[in-house]
Design a protein around this nucleic acid. Structure first.
Lengths: 344, 344
DNA sequence: CTTGGCACTCGATGAATCGGAGTGCCAGAG
DNA sequence: CTCTGGCACTCCGATTCATCGAGTGCCAAG
């Protein structure tokens, strides 16, 4: 276990290194931070930290640089998350009150976060798995098409046309079917509605004419697809230009760009981080290896929508980043977003 | 005017420079290309090219590098666009036959183009301005909501709910309104339909009860918004990871990343390039200055959908790129895309 | 446990050197 | 008028070498 002071030294090293991007030596530390001890003592502590693999020396007899493990301990022992500057608070305020629809709020939020942190910001769209089906409609369009309209609790409207094989459907028949389906589905969340829909589709022979069963199954499939589409998740990204800051992201820039393009990778990563624990989580360097993002660090948390935790929000940046500021920025923006979405 | 051979020298210089990324001198040229003349003669030609500002020397007495103007003349005089390699043809073939919906086709296409060229590929979604309105439906949802459903010639279905102020609408009233609107709009393209809609909304007092006029206007506004939304244009992008190749894009990487994020910039640029002329167009270096993309080159052309030119497709890369290959790749993929979309 | 001292390491910096690729120009040949 | 070989000149880039200094590790003393 590392001593109290050694930990303070680690914090000092990381603080200086993040700021200057240069290996930091014992002398620099005693100059810039007022430890009450001499450089030699610091050196002893640093040797200790090096034994623990929390810091490393790029070359023999040069300053030290934090390792992934060092960063990890750092964020875990980060007590005082630096409060936001007043300029940052103002920036957040400016975005309040202008909220429009969900897309707009998320787009503004992700840009805000990118601007605050100077990193790539990522916001996951709310998971709608727990959203309810508010309304369902079937509309005959021509003789062999039925338009299936689904209105969800969030106000999202989903529609799709089911093409039927050469059968002529009547307005009244469609109406009857609609009543039956709506009766079983409306009010349920997407997951339960899907189950109900499958059950209905399975027992179709019991209540429908044989020659109509096929039609019902077709329509049921379309509705199932619609339910499924709304459970699928997306993310929105901003601040990609921050990736071009030179020096950072030494060799792993390609994989980061790929991850941004893929989306699915980031989705998994953010989902994971947002899920466990209520507070802001970080994943640093090698910890991201399963996602091909060693070289990068991710800070993420969940935000709430109408009272329940829905999805992830956070930033993606180089391992050498200002965790204190960025963690508090992510936390603040997540709270703000939860507030805005809580009202609606 | 530059002589025949000087032009050939320019081509040689650009060819070598693109390949090696190093200033190319007279000696290198006589070695690698079989001009029938000596290095001194090449030097004379190079002096001439330099007078014309087609090439420039980074330092006194070093090889020459093409200028933007040089690249411009190069692509303008590019006669034999190199045919695709068989491997590339196979890659294209593999994407055939798997076409599904429009989104899928475009997503595959843009990735294909990125892979073929090793650049950032951009495909503009088809402009729907000339698409016809195929069907319109109004469905009463509850007492004070009307769902407006628009089905377009492309199969796209657009829907939106119009909220009405405390008025109870009857099923029959909605039906009547639907008939009237459908009668004036169905069969028109989006632009004309918008005009018709506005006209209808303007004369509402002549044929509707005074207390219903407001409802009609509300509904009309929603439909207008739907029409507008479908005229708006989008692009899809792939191959952003190719930006990370080092050395290229010396200092302008940030602006390129911004442009990709903005989309609207690229939309204007590609729209412009796809519009003029039928063949592949290029915009090189400073020519992109109005878009903040000096430092980059764009190769673009239009593709056809159901017989008429609809939108742009192309690649974005560093000025120093293989124009011959990339132009032919863009052309080939555009043709392939036109073929696929022509059938549907 | 801390501290000052000291020898040592090793990368960074800068000057000096050198080689060579490349140019520009000229005079002569076709 | 064009091409060619030759030649002097320039200047970049790599190499070498010496030096500097920040920083370490270790030790013996407080």
């Amino acid at each position: 276990m590392v001593s109290e002071r050694s930990l303070a030294v680690l914090h000092a090293i990381i603080g200086d290194y993040v700021e200057t991007n240069e290996p930091v030596g014992s002398k620099t530390i005693v100059e810039r931070h007022s430890f009450g001890v001499s450089a030699a003592t610091i050196r002893n502590d640093m040797a200790l930290l090096e034994d623990e693999e929390l810091i490393a020396a790029p070359h023999t007899s040069s300053g030290r640089v934090p390792t992934d493990k060092g960063y990890r301990l750092y964020v875990d022992t980060l007590a005082s998350v630096r409060p936001l500057s007043s300029a940052q608070r103002i920036a957040i305020e400016r975005f309040l009150g202008e909220s429009r629809d969900l897309d707009d709020v998320l787009a503004r939020t992700v840009r805000l976060l990118a601007q605050l942190t100077n990193q790539v910001a990522v916001v996951q769209y709310p998971s709608l798995r727990r959203t309810q089906v508010r309304h369902i409609d079937l509309v005959a369009v021509g003789e062999n098409r039925v338009l299936c309209v689904l209105i969800l609790g969030t106000g999202v409207v989903e529609q799709q046309v089911a093409s039927l094989p050469a059968a002529q459907v009547t307005e009244t028949w469609v109406h009857g079917l609609r009543e039956r389906i709506a009766g079983t589905m409306v009010g349920l969340d997407l997951e339960a509605a899907g189950d109900a829909m499958r059950a209905l589709s399975g027992t179709v022979d019991e209540w429908a004419q044989p020659d109509e069963a096929e039609l019902v199954r077709r329509i049921a499939d379309v509705i199932l697809a619609q339910l499924q589409a709304n459970r699928s998740e997306r993310i929105t990204i901003a601040g990609a230009a921050n990736l071009s800051r030179p020096g950072e992201f030494s060799g792993t820039l390609p994989s980061v760009l790929e991850a941004i393009e893929e989306q699915v990778t980031l989705l998994r990563l953010f989902g994971e981080l947002a899920r466990d624990g209520r507070d802001v989580a970080a994943s640093i360097g090698r910890e991201n290896e399963p996602y091909g993002l060693q070289g990068a660090a991710v800070i993420a948390t969940g935000y709430e929508r109408e009272g329940e935790t829905s999805s992830g929000i956070g930033v993606l940046g180089p391992v050498r980043m200002d965790y204190a500021s960025n963690i508090s920025a992510v936390r603040a923006v997540a709270r703000y977003l939860s507030g805005v979405l809580g009202e609606g």
